[in-house]
Design a protein around this nucleic acid. Structure first.
Length: 494
RNA sequence: GGCCCAUUCGUCUAGCGGCCCAGGACGCCACCCUCUCAAGGUGGAGAUCACCGGUUCGAAUCCGGUAUGGGUCACCA
């Protein structure tokens, strides 16, 4: 489909108070996709206007998260751009200038009320079951007097919200949202420390940076009218607003750190693929026909902000896991093997020498690629390949199912298998299978039942990659030794 | 409490007045394949489209109300 969409500029504007969780990541993905789709730009801006909540290292974590997800930005604090700086604490003069301009035009005024005073006011309003909010005590101070006091006294700047009328904000997803101005109070735009509040900073920066679409969580919807009023008072054109719903935790309720909300970097650690996470997050709260698995390229072709769903979506970990498996299976084998190797270098015990032999990993990659959903699934599937000694499992594990209460037959079967394997000249999967099938027939067991015993003996596990291919990798000597050890253990228990 | 927003299978969604007694995906169940586990294949259960009214020849789709859920009322974002 050919679209005539105008190049859009969108931004991710996190505050450096921790790591971005899936909610903001999904907004980032949507914004990024839309910017790409329209041939526009995506940028990163750090909103560090609250000096008290800064968490050291947050900015780096944010950047690393975006980098891992592949959400490249065209402008940002670390790479600069035509509207630098991209960190709000470095843009203070702009906010102060805007605030001063608003005071001058009568749209804002200094407020000298102390926080104790404001707390008391709020308490009174709550006690009387009235709406809380600043009632405009300092709004009536004459401008000349206010200016004089402002020069000497600590103060904030408040926006003078019109007492009459209503403000309509156009939201791209829900249409017009109308709010009566009298339900809005005179909110603070510049704090006493000279830093702007979010409200002012948003309006000033998104204008300065020529943002076309403001994408943010819908917790901002109630204050959108304030922003609209600010844009109007400053004489700035209003951007297109897109308030997207939150993501809910599986149990219901907002997804939070408590409810398993993870950061991008944690997903990486847990064995997820960036492409899968991007696809999954994009698809939760948004849909495109019957399609579910969509590559990044496909998404940038079809993603449209307008199709974002209004109802809050629940985070479905099962679906994410499934999708991760899909992406893993789709991957070229060579690339997959490298991923497995890197993961194993993290997960394998320290006594296994690094770097891992890539050709060895490539050998078993085809055996496990269909059995892996998360990268962390790899280790338990292949760890026995890296152990020179595999302890024989407890005898009870052998004497299960068909072999229950038959230690004699079990030991005999194991011995027969060992004998037959011993006699082999060739040690390839086909030969091994043919041999053991014959063994099974000879001892009067079903092939599958014998395989189960051999599997347990050779790998120490009940769930493994295909047995014969695994035995080829383990090698002749160790394989036979382990079968013999198992038979001895079973025999000893008689 | 005031204000604002939302409401289709358990979950994510398709649907934009007739093609829908509602389609796809995850999950679940069964069968097939099969050396375990997966993967794959086939089929199945699962939604009176929150409820009540209205508009219309005709509504999941438009309108109103109710209920439920969520958000927000800071010198936090």
């Amino acid at each position: 489909m050919t679209d005539d969409l105008k190049p859009a500029r969108l931004r991710l504007a996190p505050s450096p108070t921790g790591e971005p969780h899936v909610g903001v990541l999904r907004t980032a993905i949507w914004s990024w996709l839309y910017a790409k789709r329209t041939g526009g730009q995506f940028l990163l801006r750090i909103e560090d206007t609250d000096q008290t909540r800064l968490v050291p290292g947050s900015v780096e974590r944010i950047i690393r998260s975006l980098d891992w997800l592949g959400l490249t930005y065209d402008e940002g604090p670390d790479i600069g751009g035509p509207f630098a700086p991209y960190t709000q604490s470095e843009r203070l003069p702009m906010y102060q200038e805007a605030a001063a301009r608003l005071v001058q035009s009568g749209n804002a005024y200094p407020c000298f009320c102390s926080s104790e005073e404001l707390d008391a006011l709020r308490a009174r309003q709550q006690a009387e079951k009235r709406a809380t909010g600043y009632e405009g005590k300092c709004r009536v101070i004459a401008p000349a007097e206010a200016a004089a006091r402002a020069a000497a006294e600590p103060h904030v700047i408040r926006f003078a919200v019109p007492r009459e009328g209503a403000t309509t904000v156009e939201d791209l997803l829900r249409g017009p949202v109308v709010v009566e101005n009298r339900t809005l109070d005179d909110f603070v735009i510049l704090k006493s420390d000279g830093f702007p509040t979010y409200h002012l900073a948003h309006v000033v920066d998104d204008t300065a940076m020529e943002i076309t679409h403001v994408t943010r969580g819908d917790e901002w919807l109630p204050s959108a009218p304030r922003h609209a009023l600010l844009f109007d008072a400053l004489g700035y054109p209003r951007p297109i607003y897109v308030h997207n719903p939150v993501i809910l935790a599986p149990g219901g309720g907002k997804l939070s750190k408590r409810h398993g909300a993870k950061s991008a970097l944690e997903y990486a650690e847990d064995g997820y693929l960036a492409d899968a996470l991007v696809n999954f997050l994009c698809i939760t709260g948004w849909g495109h026909g019957d399609e579910t698995v969509m590559s990044r390229e496909e998404l940038t072709r079809v993603f449209d902000i307008k199709d974002i769903s209004l109802a809050p979506a629940t985070f479905d970990t099962e679906k994410l896991n499934w999708m991760n498996g899909v992406y893993l299976r789709q991957m070229p084998e060579q690339q997959l093997a490298e991923l497995f190797a890197q993961r194993l270098e993290i997960d394998l015990p320290p006594d296994v020498p690094r770097p891992l032999d890539r050709s060895f990993v490539e050998e078993f990659t085809p055996l496990i690629r269909e059995r892996v959903q998360l990268l962390t699934d790899v280790l338990p599937l292949v760890d026995f390949f890296y152990q020179s000694v595999v302890a024989t499992p407890p005898v009870e594990e052998f004497l299960a199912k068909k072999w229950k209460d038959q230690p004699q037959a079990t030991a005999d079967a194991l011995d027969a298998a060992a004998d037959d394997l011993d006699a082999l000249d060739d040690w390839d999967a086909e030969t091994l299978e043919a041999t053991l099938r014959a063994t099974a027939e000879r001892v009067g067991a079903r092939a599958g039942d014998l395989f189960t015993l051999v599997r347990l003996a050779v790998t120490g596990k009940t769930i493994t990659p295909p047995l014969f291919e695994s035995m080829v990798i383990v090698g002749t000597g160790p394989s036979i030794d382990r079968v013999r050890a198992a038979s001895a253990a079973v025999r000893a228990s008689i």
